[in-house]
């Protein structure tokens, strides 16, 4: 069995930042693996550990900088990694979910996985649509916002819990091959062990350019483009108390007095 996990390196901005043109100034950004993808990787690695002959492959669309993040996935149990990049990606700037799904579908065609796991969404642009779009593009079954997964690889069925609006859960059996978008909290992502980190140094991390995937620059033309970037006005202030219940209760009481909620 082969599981393909799509992962993304996302940028997180500091609390205070400056905007530079259509983006946040890179000086205020820190790059890390998308939070949802941490859970998708963990889910795939757990399936590998519980089963026989399961291979876990990660794929990302990203520049060379992303290799550090990808390598950490290898340290946590992914068997090999694919990075898709080409100068053309840098020129395009923003990729919409459909364009990304087209690129990833070329990788699916090469790899022929039985199961594709993605994060529900990416923490930076929060489209939350790439996984399902990919499923439609490659004609796989799909389940979105999965927060429990029980896989019967022999029967080719994934029994999943899907998190719906309003605290409702849907229980569904999905036939493989399928794409599942994984919700945070489905598992407890592991730390990379020192042995995993050492092994990751020699695991394959292959670069695929557009040519390798049978794609052309024109395939990256996206109907979406970013036209402006600004910081919205804040409508209220949140105060976060840190410390023990005794300490924070006192702080809360004085705040409530200050803003006039309670008197005295």
């Amino acid at each position: 069995m082969k599981i393909l996990v799509t992962v993304k390196e996302v940028a997180e901005a500091e609390d205070d930042f400056d905007i530079d043109g259509l983006d946040i100034d890179e000086r205020y950004l820190e790059f890390d693996l998308n939070e949802w993808d941490e859970y998708a990787i963990e889910e795939a690695v757990q399936i590998k550990e519980d089963g026989d002959d399961v291979e876990v492959v990660s794929v990302t669309i990203g520049p060379e900088r992303a290799e550090e993040t990808i390598r950490m996935g290898l340290a946590k149990g992914v068997d090999r990694a694919i990075r898709v990049w080409d100068d053309a990606f840098a020129d395009v700037g923003m990729l919409d979910p459909k364009t990304k799904a087209d690129v990833l579908s070329a990788v699916v065609e090469d790899e022929q996985p039985d199961l594709v796991l993605t994060g529900v969404q990416a923490g930076d642009d929060s489209f939350g649509a790439t996984g399902v779009t990919l499923a439609e593009t490659i004609d796989f079954e799909w389940g979105a916002v999965v927060n429990a997964l029980d896989l019967d690889a022999g029967a080719g069925v994934a029994s999943v819990h899907r998190e719906l609006e309003g605290g409702i859960e849907e229980l569904t059996d999905i036939e493989l091959p399928a794409v599942l978008t994984i919700q945070t909290g489905i598992n407890e992502p592991r730390y990379a062990s020192l042995r995993g980190i050492r092994q990751a140094q020699s695991k394959p991390l292959d670069l695929h350019e557009l040519d390798d995937l049978g794609l052309e620059e024109s395939d990256l033309e996206s109907p979406l483009s970013r036209t402006a970037m600004y910081e919205p006005e804040s409508e209220g202030d949140a105060t976060v108390f840190e410390g023990s219940a005794e300490e924070t209760a006192t702080e809360l009481a004085s705040l409530l007095r200050d803003v006039g909620v309670v008197e005295g």
Partner: peptide, 10 residues
């Protein structure tokens, strides 16, 4: 090296 960076992070 990259290995050291990963050690630090973990």
């Amino acid at each position: 090296t990259e290995l050291h960076g990963m050690i630090r992070e973990s």
